[in-house]
Design a protein around this nucleic acid. Structure first.
Lengths: 225, 225
DNA sequence: GCCCGACTGTCACAGCGGTGTCACAGCGGT
DNA sequence: ACCGCTGTGACACCGCTGTGACAGTCGGGC
């Protein structure tokens, strides 16, 4: 599901969490100290970091700050007991979430997913959906390698859908995300834009494989095998 | 531990609960009215909502219903006295739990953890019932890995049942949850929809293993071994 | 074990509502 | 001034949905 770096000095906790998270479908690399962690971060570029606060050498907060100097990836802090948390210090050093030890893989996994969902908006990586490649940095979309000329609105719509792949979005949500409207009269606005986007994106616009209709709800961008 | 939105008009109660919950390790944001709460919900996407029932303007039940139109996150209702609770109304407007005021942060924290634990299986992750997998984010249902084409009403019905696995729901409750009707004439409406859902979901629709009939009451979604 | 009443399953059908589609006019950018 | 993007309303289509009637089933009382 995600590519994680786990920084934790206690070997028992480390291996337990590593196994738990691997079982949840994540790819996990680990480091026992902050220094090792920062090195691994540079070498392997994980998607998310799970970071123990109490570390030998530089502590978790400091690791957090150093990461934030150069990277924006999500960071989840692990802390030993709830009263040890200094929320303010943690937030100010740039963490996205906390989990209190002792923690089970399931719980941590749920938090990871939550943070990743939150963070998906800001991701700048290229995304691929079948023949479609969305390059967020270039704000360009290609189909089978050829440039697609999307209009601004079509592009925003595709971007919002692609930030939540596989998730159904209601017309209301899309109106807010793409058009920044707050109300939905009876309007074919979203449908019309989806139609135009499908005409450019789908191989067979009349039987769409990428932008699926979810009846009674809205639309969803799928990733075909 | 969790990222909470607390909606409560009484400032003394609000700040007291906010402090208590923060001390328990939660990250808390607050709103004094339903409108403010709904706005914050959209902007900040908390994991869980603690919601006072008595609010100026739109009341807690109504806030609850509006949230449920677009979001699945857990909702805990705060109510002033136990005899004020209309448990049925509350459940039907989509709340996950109740706490009776006056409430201490510790108690509320325990309920929050309980609801979150319950919610981890449900929330946006997939729920499994025998061969059926319900992907709430995608609003899609599969049986043995194959896509089931559920109609909007069938899907809403299945979602409401799956939010309370093993719990019998009356036709009246289902009417409110799925159809937002308030009255129950003598109608085969729920039965008819259950029948259609069973036809798609069950292996042997005539002897259902998932959607069980509870005679004299209604229906219940079971999780067979 | 039988009967009866109440409850539930089933079905066909007509109406309706949601969705796809399109053309057009206004608007803004070039 | 021109051109292309956008939002709107109209319209058609299709499949969902609620209804009512009837059949089947269950459970309790005797």
């Amino acid at each position: 599901m995600a590519f994680l770096l786990l920084i934790e000095d206690d070997e028992a906790v480390r291996t337990a969490l590593e196994m738990g998270l691997t079982r949840q479908g994540h790819r996990v690399i680990t480091a026992p100290t902050g220094e090792d962690g920062l090195k691994l971060l540079r070498e392997q570029r994980p998607d998310l970091i799970v970071l123990d606060v109490m570390l030998p050498g530089i502590d978790g907060f400091e690791v957090c700050r150093r990461i934030r100097r150069t990277d924006q990836l999500p960071i989840i802090l692990l802390t030993a007991r709830s009263d040890d948390i200094d929320v303010v210090v943690g937030l100010e050093s740039g963490a996205d979430d906390y989990v209190v030890k002792p923690v089970q893989g399931r719980v941590l996994d749920a938090r990871i997913r939550a943070v990743m969902r939150r963070g998906e908006r800001e991701s700048n990586d290229a995304a691929t959906f079948g023949p479609i490649v969305i390059d967020r940095a270039a704000m360009a979309v290609t189909k089978n390698g050829e440039d697609l000329q999307l209009t601004p609105t079509e592009l925003r719509l595709l971007l919002e859908l692609s930030r939540r792949p596989g998730q159904a979005l209601s017309r209301q949500q899309l109106l807010r995300l793409v058009w920044e409207h707050d109300y939905l009269g009876d309007s074919r606005l979203v449908d019309a834009c989806v139609q135009r986007l499908r005409a450019k994106v789908e191989d067979v616009p009349s039987s769409p494989k990428l932008i699926r209709t979810v009846r009674g709800v809205g639309y969803r961008l799928d990733n075909p095998q």
